[in-house]
Design a protein around this nucleic acid. Structure first.
Length: 354
DNA sequence: AATCGAGCCAACCGCGTCCGG
DNA sequence: CCCGGACGCGGTTGGCTCGAT
């Protein structure tokens, strides 16, 4: 037996919204708010629509300050960076782009960015293949070294099949999930719906809409006795409390999602050296470093290297000095003390790094 | 001018999670 | 603690537009 439908499907209109419906919904919400109950709302205002449909229409279209189309290069970079870090968690990504909806970003990724990225990969791959083939021909080398492209999926080249490297908390350089969390906190992420520590319960630290997560953490750290984090522990200094909160947090929501999204899998597989073509995210130097690392380790760790690769760029960019001087942990947590490094500056620094 | 296919985007659907009774 | 309603999210679909043939 399936789940009960959220509304009476027979008496509900589907499909595109008319201007009249839009006007009704918009004026009602602007005057009265949603009333905290989307399901009841359409009936209340005489709309033959499902509550979910009303909610979607409001969030994606009618809500004030919504931007449609015309994604800037800056926004593209943010989307790509975050997609690589956290995957298709569009609502979190959308939270970093004011005026953008998760639906918009999702559509933009699926229709354009993905192709753009993969297109670039394939071009470069073809170029590489061409040049390596020429080299082999020049050397008059044996055919055994030349891949048989006739019998290959163009997207699954001569790479051995790599299994994703399972997350290991002995990873000396980065704790993947903690890094993601810290990255997102740094990026003004709102974590109201994800990965709060189970032992604290969701309601203990729920970020609100009108104040950013980072700001609240900042307040928690700097204004003892005024924030939810204070309730975690009355002893010790607040900074340490907040730090242990994040370091010790349950990471269920991200755990198990550590593998790359399929598109990026393809990028990695497409690339004998694993990371070429992502320079725009991290800079050539780092790519070179990774290539060096993975080749010395027999190329078996491309995946792991990629996973570590994708986090540092923003950290590096946002706190380059800290990164040079100390550990990632120190660097990342530095952001809690100085939370005002915003996306613009972060990505500005990325750009200038490229 | 008609047809076809690709691209795009709004909207739908189903599932997981939250939360109040 | 359990249950059911509501919410929020991500994947998918359907239909419109536009360019190529």
């Amino acid at each position: 037996m399936g789940r009960a439908p959220c509304c009476d499907k027979a008496n509900v209109k589907k499909g595109p919204w008319s201007p009249e419906e839009d006007a009704k919904l918009k004026s009602h919400i602007e005057k009265n708010g949603t009333g905290g109950n989307w399901i009841a709302l359409p009936q209340k205002i005489g709309l033959k629509r499902c509550g979910k449909s009303c909610r979607l229409r409001w969030l994606n279209y009618l809500r004030p300050n919504i931007k449609h189309g015309g994604f800037s290069e800056e926004e593209e970079k943010i989307i790509c960076s975050l997609f690589i870090s956290i995957g298709s968690r569009w609502s979190i990504i959308a939270a970093q782009l004011p005026g953008r909806t998760d639906n918009d970003i999702k559509n933009y990724w699926n229709t354009r960015l993905k192709k753009k990225l993969l297109g670039k990969q394939r071009k470069e791959q073809q170029a590489r293949r061409g040049s390596s083939l020429k080299q082999e021909m020049k050397r008059g080398g044996g055919n055994s070294m030349v891949p048989d492209n006739n019998n290959q999926n163009p997207y699954q080249p001569e790479l051995p099949v790599l299994a994703p490297i399972p997350y290991s908390n002995q990873e000396p350089r980065f704790n993947d999930h903690a890094s993601i969390r810290k990255l997102l906190i740094k990026l003004e992420g709102r974590f109201s719906e994800v990965d709060l520590p189970i032992h604290q319960g969701r309601s203990t630290l729920q970020f609100t809409n009108d104040i950013s997560a980072t700001e609240q953490i900042y307040q928690a750290v700097n204004m003892p006795g005024t924030s939810p984090i204070d309730t975690l522990n009355d002893n010790g200094n607040q900074f340490a409390q907040a730090q242990s909160y994040f370091d010790g947090a349950e990471l269920n929501a991200l755990q198990g999602q550590g593998s790359f999204p399929a598109e990026l899998e393809e990028i990695v597989y497409n690339n004998p050296q694993g990371v070429n073509g992502l320079e725009f995210l991290c800079g050539d130097d780092m790519v070179d470093n990774i290539i060096g690392t993975s080749s010395t380790s027999g190329g078996s760790n491309v995946w792991g290297e990629m996973r570590t690769l994708v986090y540092p760029p923003v950290l590096l960019a946002s706190n380059y000095e800290g990164m040079q001087q100390g550990t990632l942990q120190e660097c990342a947590f530095e952001e809690l003390r100085y939370p005002h490094a915003n996306l613009a500056s972060v990505h500005g620094k990325i750009s200038s790094n490229i």
